[in-house]
C-alpha cells in the first residue's frame, strides 16, 4: 500500500451488508500478509441506523479499531448521505470516494419530520469533499442480479477496478468460500465484475 496505514471506511445503512464487505476486504488482505484492524458498530445496525466499518491496513502494526478524524483514504459508501456523513468527519482533500447513488431514506424523512438533501446538491457536496469520486448505480445493478444486498460486492469490485484496493475476483472467491458459502461464489464473482466494469464506464468526478 502506498500509504501506511491505509484507512478505508465502508459505510451504509443497517442491513446493506457493509459489515460483510469490510470483513471480506480484511480477510483477503490479512491473507496477503497485511495487518488489518476493522472497527464496527453492531447491535442496532440491523435497525435502520447509520453503519460504519473502519478498515485500517498496515504493513507494520496492528492499528486501533477507529480511524482518527480526517484520516480516511478511501470511502466506500452504500448510501449517498452516509458518504457525506463519513466525509464530514473523516474526509480530507486526498480522500477518494466510491458511492452508490441510491438513497435509503431515514424513517424521519419518510415520516416528513426531516428532509433528505437534494440529490444533485448532495452529489456535488460529496465531490467537493473528495479528491476523486465514483458514483455508481450499485443497488439498481444488484436488483438486476436478483438481490439488492449484492450492492456491497459491486462497490468492492468497483474499488478494486479503480485500483483503490489490491484485491481480485479470485481473492473474493476464496474469501467467500471460506467465510460465507461455496454456493454463493458465482453470484458474488458476477457482482464483483459488474462493479469493476461499472467503474470503468463512469467518469470519475
Amino acid at each position: 500500500m502506498e500509504k501506511d496505514p491505509y484507512n478505508v471506511v465502508v459505510t451504509g445503512v443497517g442491513g446493506q451488508g457493509n459489515v460483510l464487505a469490510s470483513q471480506l476486504i480484511g480477510a483477503i488482505l490479512v491473507d496477503k500478509g497485511l495487518k488489518v484492524t476493522i472497527g464496527e458498530t453492531y447491535g442496532a445496525s440491523q435497525r435502520g441506523g447509520s453503519v460504519m466499518s473502519h478498515v485500517r491496513i498496515s504493513e507494520k502494526r496492528q492499528y486501533g479499531p477507529l480511524i482518527p478524524p480526517r484520516c480516511a483514504d478511501l470511502v466506500l459508501a452504500l448510501e449517498p448521505s452516509e458518504a457525506a456523513r463519513v466525509l464530514g468527519e473523516f474526509g480530507n482533500p486526498a480522500t477518494i470516494s466510491v458511492v452508490n447513488t441510491r438513497p435509503v431514506y431515514p424513517v424521519d424523512v419518510i415520516s416528513g419530520d426531516l428532509t433528505y438533501p437534494d440529490i444533485d446538491r448532495l452529489f456535488e457536496k460529496i465531490k467537493s469533499l473528495s479528491a476523486k469520486t465514483y458514483f455508481l448505480p450499485a443497488t439498481d445493478r444488484a436488483l438486476e442480479l436478483g438481490s439488492p444486498i449484492l450492492a456491497n460486492i459491486i462497490l468492492m469490485g468497483a474499488a478494486a477496478g479503480a485500483g483503490l484496493l489490491p484485491i481480485t475476483e479470485d481473492d473474493l472467491a476464496k474469501a467467500i468460500t471460506e467465510r460465507v458459502s461455496a454456493a454463493k461464489v458465482d453470484i458474488n464473482r458476477t457482482a464483483f465484475r459488474v462493479g469493476a466494469d461499472l467503474v470503468n464506464d463512469v467518469p470519475a468526478g
Partner: peptide
C-alpha cells in the same frame, strides 16, 4: 485546510439527515 473544514462542517449539518433507529 480551512475551506475543507468548513465544507465538511456544512456536509454534517445540511447533508446528513439523522437516522433514528427503527424496526426492520
Amino acid at each position: 485546510d480551512a475551506d475543507y473544514a468548513e465544507s465538511a462542517r456544512d456536509a454534517l449539518e445540511n447533508f446528513t439527515p439523522f437516522r433514528s433507529l427503527a424496526f426492520c
